[in-house]
Amino acid sequence: MPALLRGKKLVLKDGTFQLVRDYQRNGERVRYLSAERGDWEEIPAVMVDWDATAKTAAAEKSEEDALAKKIHAQEQAQKIETVMDVDASLQVSPGVFLPPGEGMFVIDGKSVKPLEQVGSQVKTDKKQYLKRVLSPIPIVPSKQNVQIPGTRASIRVRNGQTEFYLREAPADPDRTTPIVKSSRPGESGPEVELVRATVKGNKRQLESIKSLFGEQLEEKRNTISIQRWEIAPTVFRFTLSEPLPPGEYALAERLPDGMNLFVWDFGVDPVTGAKPTTPLKKKN
C-alpha cells in the first residue's frame, strides 16, 4: 500500500486541487512544489481559488490541533495509569514511587532497586576447631561464622545516604510470600539489622558465634544503626543517621532464634572524586 501523501491543498476554481508541499505567488503566476511528482510546476494565478485555499488550510490546521490534543490526552491518561500501577500512595521521594510487590527495596538517588535475598551459610571456624581438638580438656568454645558466598553483591549503590523500604504481605496463612525466613518471625514487626560484611577469601562474613557445651556465649557482627518507621500497613522505612562508606553490606531480619540466614545484600561503591567518608560507629 503506497504511503499517504501529506501537503497543502492549492484549491482551483474548477473545484479540483493540487496537493503541494509549498507554493509561491509571483505576480500572475503561482509556482508550487508538487507533492505527487516532486517537481516545481507553474500555473496562472487566476486559476487558483484563494478564498477556498485559505479556508481549507484553516480547516486542516484545526483538525491537526484537535488530533494533537487527543494524543496528548491519551498520553497523560497512560501516565496516570502507570502511576496508579505502582501505588501512588507510596511516593518515597518527589517523582519516585515504591514498586508493587513484596520485598526489600533500596533508594539510590532517583532510582528504586529491589534487593534479592541470598542464603548465607554457617561454617565452623577451622582454627577454633583445631584448638578444641588439641586441648586436653574440652573447654575451648566452638566458633561458627555466618557467610555469604562471593566477594561482591550484585546490587550496587553510589549514594551512601540511602534508605530502605520493606513491604511485607498482610497476615494470611494460605498465601505464599517471596520473602524467605529461616524460622518463624516475631509478632511485633520486622526487626531488621544493617550489617557490614568483612570480605575474607571469596566470602563475605556477617557474624561469628561462639558457643560452649551447646550454650551460645557470644555473637559478633558489625552492625550499623538504622531507624524503622511504619509508613503504611505492612510497609516499613529504614533510615540511616550517617552516609554509608564504600563496602559490602547486608540487611538481616532478627528472628526469635537469631539472625535470618536469608539476607538482602548490596554494596556501596566509592564516588569518583569524593572525599573519604568517616567510618560509621558500631551499634552497641
Rank of each mutant, 00 (worst) to 15 (best):
S188T: 08
S182A: 11
E28A: 15
Y32G: 03
P173R: 03
P246D: 10
G109T: 07
G101Q: 03
D65L: 14
P114V: 03
A57I: 01
P279A: 11
T53C: 06
Q128F: 11
K127S: 10
Y165A: 06
Q91Y: 09
E191C: 06
Q227W: 08
D39C: 00
S188G: 00
T162W: 10
F17G: 00
R6T: 13
K123M: 11
I148Y: 02
N145S: 15
S111F: 01
K281Q: 15
S182Y: 13
Q76N: 08
V146S: 09
L98P: 01
F262H: 12
I226K: 02
R196F: 00
P2V: 01
S62N: 11
K200Y: 06
F266M: 01
P178V: 05
T56D: 10
V96M: 04
I148G: 04
K210A: 10
E60Y: 02
A52E: 12
V180Y: 05
F213L: 14
M104H: 03
Q161G: 06
V157T: 14
Y23L: 08
A232T: 02
Q161H: 11
T198V: 15
G103P: 02
P138L: 04
L12R: 11
R254F: 01
R254V: 10
A250S: 06
K143S: 10
K282W: 09
D85A: 13
R132P: 02
D125Q: 02
R6H: 14
R21W: 00
L251K: 03
Y129K: 11
K143Q: 14
L217H: 06
I71A: 10
E42L: 06
D39L: 07
S241A: 12
P256M: 08
V146W: 07
T56K: 01
V118K: 11
K8T: 08
P256F: 09
A274C: 03
P114E: 06
W50G: 01
E168G: 00
E163V: 02
Q74L: 11
Q128C: 04
L251T: 02
L4P: 00
G119C: 05
H72S: 10
N202L: 11
